[in-house]
Simulated scan of single mutants.
Amino acid sequence: MPDTAAKTLSALKRTIETEREGMLQLQSALDQAAVDVVDLIGSVEGRLACVGVGKSGHVARKIAATLASTGTPAYFVHPAEASHGDLGMISQQDAVLALSKSGETKELSDIIAYCRRFSVPLIGMTTDATSTLAKNSDHLLLVPNAAEACGETRAPTTSTTLMMAYGDALAVALIERRGFTAMDFKRYHPGGALGAALTSAADLMASAEDIPLVAEGTSMEAAVAEMSAKGFGCVGVKSADGTLAGIITDGDLRRNLAVDLPNRKVDEIMTRGPITVKETSLAADVLRTLTAGERKLTQVFVCNEASEPTGLIHMHMLLKAGLS
């Protein structure tokens, strides 16, 4: 490997290692103070205002976005704009999360004063327990003063990574505290591949008269006619109690062409106890069911809690919805 390439690779690996060491320090430093902050954020009547300047501001904006998308009302306020009117965005029912590595960011002074004047809970996230921010915070999230990955310039690298990770940890703890589910998450992410993955089987499936179904004892001639009419490449077989007894696919037809197929009964041809999904299954789980292992299914029946077939999902439906 050329000398320049070797140095570059070394710098890349050293950066990751330095930040990894900082993350381990952060993990060890977590204590009751973090638990108290989760309790505070989870019980606040209003929203959480996340504030910071420079790189800390970018992290604060990301933390606010993550919290808001996972069920914790949060928003970002730029400290400079706050000093020119945006302090009015922060109500007495809110709490404030202020980020500053040094804890001496002068642009935060007006927000700190505002929180003290109106008794707005202030959470400080900083590396210096003796700083102005730390001393004026109701709750302190102390971040380890770990070495920055760029030692010569001390550009914010490890410190911002730790703050970002701390924000993620708060978000996950709040998700679990609230019992926030994937379906709750879907409400905030209706678009794109993520929204498609969180769509339920009931939202995507063909149902009612559109799904191919015949009763046990039906002739294969009638079953093939039903299969052809519905166009899903299969037909489900219902038992007398309404549950799904089996399935017949195009592959089953090909494997049985040599016999007197039209005059045989579906009971002789069908695959019993077919794989199914629930109406509440997420689309991502349906896709996993279709593609798991060696079976590579093309379609799957959707059943209710009573194991009665209520719908059918074809792979093409998932692809059309944006899953792949």
Rank of each mutant, 00 (worst) to 15 (best):
Q93V: 14
F232I: 04
S307N: 11
G273K: 13
T105Y: 06
L287S: 01
F118W: 12
L67Y: 01
A215C: 10
D267Q: 02
A292C: 07
V77Q: 12
H139W: 15
D241E: 13
T243V: 10
I248Y: 11
G151A: 08
I247T: 04
S91Y: 02
A68M: 07
R295S: 12
L87K: 05
G57D: 07
D252V: 05
A321L: 11
C50G: 09
H84V: 11
G273F: 06
S91N: 03
R154Q: 09
L244M: 04
S119N: 13
A306D: 14
A196K: 07
G88T: 09
G231Y: 00
Q92F: 03
S91R: 15
S10L: 10
A149T: 01
V266K: 00
T127H: 03
S83D: 07
T218C: 12
R178T: 09
S28K: 13
G217T: 08
Y75Q: 13
A65V: 07
T132S: 11
L198C: 03
M315C: 05
G42V: 04
A60M: 03
G322I: 09
R61M: 15
P144D: 00
A64W: 05
V96Q: 00
E279T: 15
E308D: 05
E216Q: 14
P190R: 12
D3T: 15
Q25D: 13
V38M: 00
V53Y: 06
T249P: 04
K135G: 01
G192C: 09
G103I: 07
A5W: 13
M163N: 13
D94Y: 08
S228M: 09
P73L: 03
L141V: 09
V143Y: 03
M220E: 05
G179A: 02
F180Y: 15
L198H: 01
I313F: 00
V214W: 01
L26D: 02
G88R: 01
G233C: 08
